[in-house]
Amino acid sequence: MTEKLWPLYEVFLRPRNGLAHKHVGSLHAADDEMALQNARDVYTRRGEAISIWVVPSKAIIASAPNEREALLEPSTEERKPYRHPTFYDIPDEVGHM
């Protein structure tokens, strides 16, 4: 029997409640359930997580680095400083705001 190439999955862990899942790496598995088991074995040998997500890598829709300027540059602080609190001068006498 010739071996099939197993799909790639991205692994995300939630270290504890209150924190978001964070990407830690990837792995190959024959199906979704085995991906979850493999993620447990490979990425959580020391209680690193209370919850695991695995996502087929091909399901992730990513922005391209060369489109960064067009896509994301318009929202930077340099371009739209007025969206940030420090843009506004409030006299000290007013107190914390």
Binding site: M1, E3, K4, A29, A30, D31, E33, M34
Partner: peptide, 16 residues
Amino acid sequence: GAWVREAAEAFAEKRR
């Protein structure tokens, strides 16, 4: 270890 990989594939196939 080939049989382990083959078994994993067969099991995945069965589940599908």
